[in-house]
Amino acid sequence: MQDIPTFDEIRAAILRDTVSLNPDADVTADSDNYIRASSLASCATGQYAHQAWILKQFFPDTADTEYLERHCNLRGIRRKNATLAAGTASVTGNTGATIPADAQIRCGNLFYRVRTAVVIGIKGTATIEIIATEPGTAANQHEAVAGQFMSAPLGVATDVQIEQAAGGTDTETDSALLARLLELLRRPPAGGNKYDYKAWALSVDGVSSAYVYPLHRGLGTVDIVITSGNNVPSDEIVSKVQDYIDSVRPVTAKNSFVIKPDVTKVDVKVKVRLFGATLDRATADIRQALQEHFSAIKPGDSVIASQLEAVISDVPSVTDRKMTQPTTNLTAETSKKIEWFMLGKVDVSML
């Protein structure tokens, strides 16, 4: 694209033309010609900027949000909405006590509500289904955390243990929306190949990534593994994806199955020699570095022990290390299930 002239360049060109028409014209900085040229240059600069902005909107990879959405709408792609995290919680109380639907539970600054009424059993415990009151990834709980009823029902303890909550996602970003559009442009619909299945899955609210395994269970079968917010999706999201794919897949396809990845936690134990940092500080840095590494591991990927050692060695305060777990590479199971390795406990001690 041709470079847009600057304000000074435009004004200089106007003054040059003025002198060309009238060699005796005064074009000094305080002259009328100079002031008039400055005004015209200011208008021209705005017009150039507007034309450059219009040109950016022609192409989806440079378009602003509003026009990016219009590019996507023309091809049947819409921005995915944020979704609610859903999961389970354990409660205790008197046998026969009822926990009504919509009872609210607080966990820090997050709030959940009970989805369906539950009666506490003879053991004095019950498992309830919960769903976040606000959408977003913040409500996902990957490990058990404590919560409290906002107003505990009669005969029910106030304290609650939220076992897990998954499926919460934020509103789709411009970059993710653009990535889906570019994928469609580069790989247009092809009658049901694996890229079509991926595009169908990614179009459903709550799906962050999708991995397609053609013929995974034999001829005519397709397995689609989905994730949500870099974690396992909720049953509700899996059901929505399954229903949508069943409605758009080729009628000749024998079976298409949307599944969750099977998560395996990988504990890491390492002894380190440090310089310029405490053990607590180094442990936090090592865990963060490992978490970033594991976040790039997809369902079905293996864990390479030497890569973990390299990640730990790259932490600035670590001068030496000896990893004792895992000691060998971990190969993901993909025949009967799709295994997904995620970071577990990180145990760091001095070498």
Rank of each mutant, 00 (worst) to 15 (best):
72 C>K: 01
96 G>N: 10
78 R>H: 14
107 C>W: 02
104 Q>E: 15
68 L>F: 12
69 E>A: 03
105 I>C: 13
68 L>K: 03
75 R>Q: 14
80 K>F: 05
70 R>F: 08
90 S>E: 13
84 L>N: 07
83 T>Q: 07
107 C>D: 11
62 T>D: 03
87 G>H: 02
107 C>M: 04
79 R>G: 08
67 Y>C: 07
102 D>A: 10
73 N>V: 05
101 A>R: 11
73 N>W: 13
103 A>I: 09
65 T>W: 00
88 T>C: 00
99 I>R: 02
82 A>P: 14
88 T>E: 09
66 E>A: 09
100 P>F: 02
64 D>Q: 05
88 T>Q: 04
103 A>D: 14
87 G>A: 02
99 I>V: 07
78 R>E: 15
94 N>G: 05
70 R>E: 14
63 A>L: 11
100 P>L: 04
80 K>I: 03
88 T>Y: 06
96 G>K: 02
84 L>Y: 15
61 D>M: 01
95 T>V: 08
92 T>A: 15
86 A>M: 06
102 D>Q: 08
67 Y>R: 10
81 N>M: 06
107 C>A: 13
86 A>C: 00
100 P>D: 01
81 N>R: 08
80 K>P: 04
81 N>T: 07
69 E>C: 00
70 R>W: 09
88 T>I: 00
97 A>G: 00
101 A>G: 11
76 G>Y: 10
98 T>H: 00
67 Y>G: 03
65 T>E: 08
71 H>G: 05
90 S>R: 07
78 R>V: 14
73 N>S: 12
85 A>G: 13
95 T>F: 14
66 E>H: 03
61 D>V: 15
89 A>K: 04
90 S>P: 01
77 I>A: 03
